[in-house]
Write a protein that binds this DNA or RNA. Structure first.
Length: 406
DNA sequence: CCTCCACAGGAAGCGCAGGAGT
DNA sequence: ACTCCTGCGCTTCCTGTGGAGG
């Protein structure tokens, strides 16, 4: 006995969400507002597979959260399901090159998508050349049109090699073929490519512009309708989320994330209404999350420096300048370094970095916006900098302490 | 005014990992 | 598979700078 009520509580917990999945980062909506034109263009290009022709390769460029991946995936799903109905051999694979960042890995992932029933290690241990043969023979033997959607294409190290192989493969195939749809948020990388790679990859080029606030609003309204209970979200909350995202980057993903978090905050409060205040808090919460994520990938000794700053900030009384002015929560650069040396030893990180490099760390931390420094100015002897923490000291201390301990 | 202090940040160089070339 | 090269993180050394103090 006793546990039933836990489950009951969870089950009947009031929530502002109707279908939480619809607002998760990886959900691909079935209609994408303001991307009709791009969808039509891509569809037009790949539609020639239905008549047995090989489409041009496509290169899609656009900033994060502009719908590149969703659009490409959606068009591919539609194309493949249409082709299936007509029993035409059209297939697509999706590879995210951030994790599959080498030719070998891209080929491996593609084969696994093509043969999902094969065990994971079926293709492991073979050379890239073998995997390539395997892929080509699949296309040739089944006379399939294979479309490879390669997301974050700029992350592939031997891209010239990969593109060269894939385009060359089409020469040995009479019926069917391989088409590449490359996606990237870095336009500059295109110029660094081998000219032949560039010309074959960019047979068709597309640019996805960022969304403006109005468009983001429409997108959010649509998602809210699917994901939240009716009337659960204030229209002011939607507008604010759209405005924040538009101002920051025109990124639909952050806008959606903001609303998801706002909804979670409302649930925590046991409110049935998501207000703009929730969105404001959500923004803070998301920001802090990003900061914390940022911190965990910092170099070990940079974390130690940051930790030292947080620790010193927590037991620091306001500084009384000779001029009588009070400055709150600032630390001397030199004192931080000395304390850092002790801290490093305390946590068994031997040989702390030199004072010179410590200064470099301070500059880094300032660049990341985690601290601010100001010239000491009159009232202090020597030329030094005051260091002030810009983020929550307690949180930083907690997180890093846990990390150093474990 | 000069000197010392307490740093800031440039220059050179070192050891190392990983990519390119063969 | 091997060396060669390059970039990176870091140290050492050094010069510069603004204010305090005599």
């Amino acid at each position: 006995m006793g546990l039933q009520h836990v489950f009951e509580a969870e089950f009947s917990k009031p929530t502002v969400f109707l279908d939480r999945n619809k607002i998760m980062p990886h959900y691909t909506p079935q209609n994408l507002p303001f991307r009709e034109e791009q969808q039509a263009t891509i569809s037009g290009i790949v539609a020639v597979t239905l008549r047995g022709q090989r489409p041009d390769n496509i290169f899609i460029y656009g900033k994060p959260g502009t719908g590149k991946t969703s659009t490409a995936k959606h068009v591919m799903d539609e194309l493949c399901s249409f082709a299936e109905k007509k029993s035409l051999k059209v297939k697509h694979v999706y590879v995210n090159c951030r994790t599959h960042n080498k030719k070998y890995k891209v080929l491996l992932k593609s084969l696994r998508e093509i043969y999902p029933s094969e065990p994971d290690k079926a293709f492991q241990g073979y050379s890239a050349a073998y995997l390539y043969e395997k892929l080509v023979s699949f296309v040739r033997d089944t006379q399939t049109h294979l479309i490879m959607v390669l997301d974050e294409l700029d992350k592939v190290r031997d891209l010239d090699d990969l593109i060269y192989s894939v385009t060359r493969s089409n020469d040995e195939i009479q019926v069917g073929g391989i088409t590449v749809i490359g996606i990237s948020n870095n336009l500059l990388f295109k110029d660094a490519l081998d000219p032949r790679t560039k010309s074959s990859l960019c047979q068709q080029e597309m640019i996805f512009p960022p969304y403006n606030a109005e468009q983001l609003r429409t997108i959010l309204e649509q998602r809210v309708q699917e994901a939240f209970a009716p009337q659960a979200v204030d229209s002011g909350a939607i507008s604010l989320a759209a405005a924040i995202a538009a101002q920051e980057s025109g990124d639909a993903r952050t806008a959606i994330k903001l609303l998801l978090r706002a909804g979670e905050l409302a649930d925590d409060e046991k409110t049935t209404q998501v207000t703009d205040q929730h969105v404001k808090n959500a923004r803070k919460s998301v920001e802090q999350e990003i900061i914390l994520e940022h911190i965990t990938v910092l170099p070990e000794h940079e974390k130690l420096v940051l930790y030292t700053i947080a620790a010193l900030t927590l037991n620091r009384k306001p500084l009384q300048r000779l001029s009588g002015e009070k400055v709150e929560g600032v630390l001397y650069s030199g004192e931080v370094y000395e304390e850092y040396e002790r801290t490093a030893k305390k946590f068994k990180f031997n040989d702390p970095v030199s004072a010179r490099w410590y200064r470099e760390y301070i500059n880094q931390l300032e660049m990341y916006g985690l601290i601010v420094t100001t010239a000491s100015g009159p009232g202090v002897k020597g030329q030094t900098r005051f260091i002030k923490l810009k983020v929550d000291a307690l949180k930083i201390k907690e997180v890093l302490e846990k990390e150093f301990a474990g």
